[in-house]
Structure formats: C-alpha cells, structure tokens
Computed example of a mutant assay.
Amino acid sequence: MRKELHRITLRQLQVFRSLCATLSYSRTAEEMALTQPAVSLQMRQLEELVGQPLFEYVGRKLYLTDAATILLAASGDIFNRLEILDMQLSALQGTLHGELRLAVASSIQYLTPHLLAAFRQRHPEVSFRLEVSTRAEVIRRLRDNLDDVVLVGMVPADRALDFFPFLNNPVIAVAAPDHPLAARQQLGLAELESQMVLVREIGSGVRKACDEFFQQKRVHLQRVMQMGSGETVVQSAIAGLGIGLVSAHSAAPWLRNGQLARLDFTDLPLFRSWCAVHARGKRLSPVAEAFLAFLREERALIKQLAEPFS
C-alpha cells in the first residue's frame, strides 16, 4: 500500500463524505462546524494524499471524479467496520449497541414498527434507520448494499442472496361492502374475468405473485386498473372502483372498521411469505445478526404481532 494513504485521517474522510453528499463547500462547512476555507484545506490535503483530484466544477456545479467515487465506497467500508467494532465492544460489555439499517416493501410497513419495538424491548440501546419503498426500490437498495437487511415478499432468483421466510403474507380479494360479490359465498376465480380488478404495479411482489397464480389457474383478467401502492389499491376498493388484490396486512385496518369486505373466493387467499434477505457473504453487524436471530426464533411472538394485520 502507498504510504501516503496511511496518513489519511478519519476527520478528512468525514469531511469528504459530507461534501460528497452536499456537493457544497458552504453546506459542508455548516454541517461539520468548520469554516469554508478549512473544508477546502482538508480536501486539498486529501487530494495530495490520494494523488488525484476528487472534485471538479462543470459550470457552477460540483461533481465527483472517478477517484472520489472509489474513495467514497472505500470510506463507507471503513466507517461501517468501525460501527461494527463499536457494536462488538458493546457486546463484550453485555449490551447490544448500534443502528439497524432496514428496508421494507410498502405492504409490510404497518407491521414493521411493531417488529422493531419488540426487538428493542430486548435490546434497548439499539436504534433503527427504516426505509419503506416499492419492491423494485428495495431490491435496488439490496443490490447497492445500502441496508443491513431487507424484508420483501418475493426474493429475486437471479442474485446471490441469503434469506429465510419468517411470516405468512396472504393475498386476498377485497371490495366495498356494497359490491355485488360481497354478499356471495364460494366464488370461483373465473368471476374475476368480468370484473374491474385493482392490481399493484408491475414489479410489485403482490403483482408478480398474482400474475403467476392466475396464469397457473388459467384465469385471464379482462379489466385491470393498475395502482402504485397497496394503500392506493385499498382506498380505490373502498371508493368502489373495483375488486382489489392486496396483502391482508395492507387491508386489515379497513376490514376491521367495515369500510372493506373480504370476498369469499374459494382459491384465495394466495399464500406467500415475508422473507428477511441480505447479500450472500455480507459482513453482518452484531445488531443485524441479533435481528435475524429474533426473526428466526420468535415466530410465535411475530405471529401474534401480525394478527391485527391479518
């Protein structure tokens, strides 16, 4: 290794990472409690140690160079390793300390805070950074290694991943209580072919599961209205736009208060599982390891927490 790299300080890397995020010397100075000349000096010194320019101006806008992009990734590894060290030292003292970075698909967003609260009862020094998004965005975050663990309904088959199911995730059909099919029992799936059906967007786990299921059952939906979230499907069904195919977790509050009715299709619910996923070979922090152990070992508690959302 070049000896100059040994002289890079953590403070320089902190300032550098802030500047990469803000792309503004003045805002970085404010965030780091420095003067703007001090930020400029830190970056000049860092560039001398790296041996290449890290930033360049195009017009009046600041951009990262290729060297900066490489250094940003390496500095992320360094700070992540220090965070793991902090957690490991805390574990030696008998306490689990640190932050869990978690990304979840939107259809499990209502249950997730209850999972985290139950986990934190066991480890009160743990904090969380929670991102809720579409399945496609969660998979992108998984690819970019932005989180410790992600929770999704359908695990991509084209990636090297470690995962395990921890909770059933039934997909059900719902509609407004005055929908013509709401009062009928033992409905066949073929009934859906003449109805307006509200579905999630392409790429959603619920949509993918439904498409595969209907193909297997040889059911061809003729009238489909696509929605961008499970909550939009639910609200559209409440409004009377059609029959919604949605995770039971997303529909539960409105089923309980009577704004929605669950339709009695003989082949539904469609059962899927929520899975905890991370990249194979990923170095997991002690907090992430403890959270995965919680999901594996506390199935009865998790099922109890999920009952209001089922």
Rank of each mutant, 00 (worst) to 15 (best):
I139H: 08
E125D: 14
P180V: 06
P253L: 14
R27W: 08
E201P: 05
V234H: 03
Y57T: 09
L181F: 13
L111K: 05
T28K: 02
L100H: 05
A67T: 12
L146W: 07
P253E: 14
T65Q: 11
V126H: 06
H179N: 10
I8T: 07
T69E: 09
H249D: 11
P165R: 08
A157I: 11
S273W: 11
R101F: 02
Q109I: 11
C210M: 09
V287A: 04
R140K: 09
T95K: 12
V246A: 06
L146N: 08
R81A: 13
G242N: 09
Y57H: 11
L5C: 00
L72W: 00
A157M: 11
L241D: 05
V39Y: 10
K3H: 12
T69G: 03
A136W: 11
F213G: 00
L221K: 14
A237G: 10
F55L: 06
F309L: 01
G228L: 14
S90E: 09
R218T: 13
F214C: 00
E231A: 15
S127D: 10
G230R: 11
D267C: 00
R44I: 00
R296V: 03
V197C: 13
G94Y: 12
Q185T: 15
I8Q: 14
N257V: 03
S204L: 04
L100V: 03
V104T: 13
V138L: 03
R200D: 12
T22W: 13
H220L: 08
R81D: 10
G59K: 02
A252V: 03
P177F: 10
V58N: 12
Y25N: 06
Q52M: 09
L64K: 11
A74R: 08
H114M: 06
F79C: 04
